[in-house]
Deep mutational scan, measured.
Amino acid sequence: RALPCPAHVVFRYQAGREDELTITEGEWLEVIEEGDADEWVKARNQHGEVGFVPERYLNFPD
């Protein structure tokens, strides 16, 4: 997929490290980079905060 792209959060995730982003179910993010580890992506939330989130917690519109 082309980046950046929108993504809808389907599961809540609490950041466990400083470089991760806490996300809430129902929130929209902008995915800006593929992650440095499998199944992680770097995203920006509506407040401009950036961090890594688990890709499987997101839904990408067609």
Results as ranks from 00 to 15, higher is better:
G35A: 11
G35F: 09
R56L: 10
N59G: 10
K42H: 03
V31Y: 05
C5E: 03
I32M: 09
F60G: 04
N45R: 00
L3Y: 15
D36L: 13
E27A: 02
G48F: 06
Q14M: 10
A37K: 15
V10H: 09
E39D: 07
K42I: 15
V31F: 00
E25P: 11
A2G: 15
R1L: 04
E34S: 10
D36V: 10
L29D: 03
G51D: 02
N45F: 01
W28I: 13
Q46N: 12
G48D: 08
T24N: 08
G26L: 02
G16L: 12
W40K: 11
E18H: 04
P4S: 07
L3I: 11
R12W: 05
A15D: 03
E25L: 06
Q46E: 11
V41P: 00
V53W: 00
L21H: 02
V50K: 08
A43M: 04
V31R: 02
F52N: 09
E20R: 06
A43L: 01
F60L: 08
P4V: 06
N45H: 09
Y13T: 03
Y13P: 02
W40P: 02
E33Q: 14
F11P: 02
A43F: 02
C5T: 04
A43V: 11
G51N: 00
N45V: 00
P54G: 06
E33I: 02
V10D: 10
G16C: 14
E55F: 09
A37W: 11
W28S: 12
A2V: 15
T22F: 02
F11S: 13
N59R: 14
G48W: 05
A15S: 09
T24F: 07
E27H: 01
R12C: 11
E27Y: 01
V9Y: 03
A43Q: 01
W28F: 15
E25Y: 15
R56N: 14
E27Q: 06
V31W: 01
P6R: 11
N45W: 00
G51L: 07
G48I: 02
N59H: 13
E30T: 11
P6G: 08
G26M: 02
E18T: 12
T22Q: 03
E25K: 15
E27S: 00
D38R: 14
I32R: 01
A2S: 15
A2D: 15
T24G: 07
L3V: 05
W28Y: 10
Y13S: 06
V53D: 02
L21S: 04
L29F: 00
N59I: 11
G16P: 03
E33V: 03
A37P: 10
E49Y: 05
K42G: 02
D19S: 14
V53A: 03
L58T: 03
F60Y: 12
D19I: 10
P6T: 08
V41F: 07
F52Q: 07
L58G: 02
R17H: 14
E39G: 14
W40H: 13
E49L: 09
A43H: 03
E55S: 11
G35L: 06
D19Q: 14
N59P: 00
L21K: 00
E55I: 14
D38M: 09
R56A: 14
I32Q: 06
P61A: 12
H47C: 11
L29A: 02
D19H: 12
R12F: 12
V31P: 00
I23D: 02
E33W: 03
R17P: 01
Q46T: 12
P6I: 14
V9F: 01
I32H: 04
R1P: 03
L3G: 03
T24I: 11
V53M: 03
A15Q: 07
V10N: 06
A37F: 12
A43P: 01
D38G: 13
L3K: 07
G51R: 01
I23R: 02
A37M: 13
A43G: 06
R12N: 14
A7P: 01
V31D: 00
T24W: 07
Q46M: 10
E20W: 00
A7T: 01
P61M: 11
E34Q: 12
P61S: 15
R56E: 14
F60R: 06
R1C: 04
F11V: 13
P61I: 15
Y13C: 04
D62K: 09
A7M: 00
P54R: 13
W40I: 09
N45P: 06
E55A: 12
E20Y: 04
A15I: 02
V10K: 10
E18G: 11
C5K: 04
V50N: 02
E20F: 06
W28Q: 13
A37V: 14
E55H: 09
E33P: 02
E34M: 11
G16N: 15
W28V: 15
A43I: 06
I23T: 07
W28C: 13
P54S: 10
P61R: 10
P4D: 04
E49V: 09
H8K: 07
T24V: 12
P61H: 07
L3C: 10
G48H: 06
L58A: 02
R12S: 15
P61Q: 14
N45T: 05
T22E: 04
R56V: 10
N45C: 00
V9W: 01
C5W: 05
R1V: 04
G35V: 13
A43W: 01
I32F: 13
E33D: 09
R44G: 01
K42P: 00
E25M: 06
G48E: 09
V10W: 07
V9A: 13
F11K: 13
E49C: 12
A7G: 06
V41E: 00
T22H: 04
D19R: 11
V53C: 07
R56I: 07
Y13M: 03
V10G: 08
I23K: 02
F60T: 04
R44P: 03
E39W: 07
H8T: 08
R1A: 05
I23Y: 00
D19A: 15
D36C: 08
W28G: 08
Y13A: 04
D36P: 15
G48Q: 03
F60E: 03
G48R: 05
T24R: 12
L21P: 00
A2L: 13
G35S: 11
L29R: 02
F52D: 05
Y57P: 03
G48T: 00
C5D: 00
V53Y: 04
F11C: 13
G26P: 02
A15P: 05
D19N: 12
H47S: 14
D62E: 15
R44Y: 03
E30D: 08
R17S: 12
V9P: 02
C5Y: 08
P54E: 04
T24E: 15
Q14Y: 07
E49S: 12
A37S: 15
Q14H: 11
G26N: 08
D62C: 15
A37E: 15
F11Y: 14
P61V: 13
E49W: 06
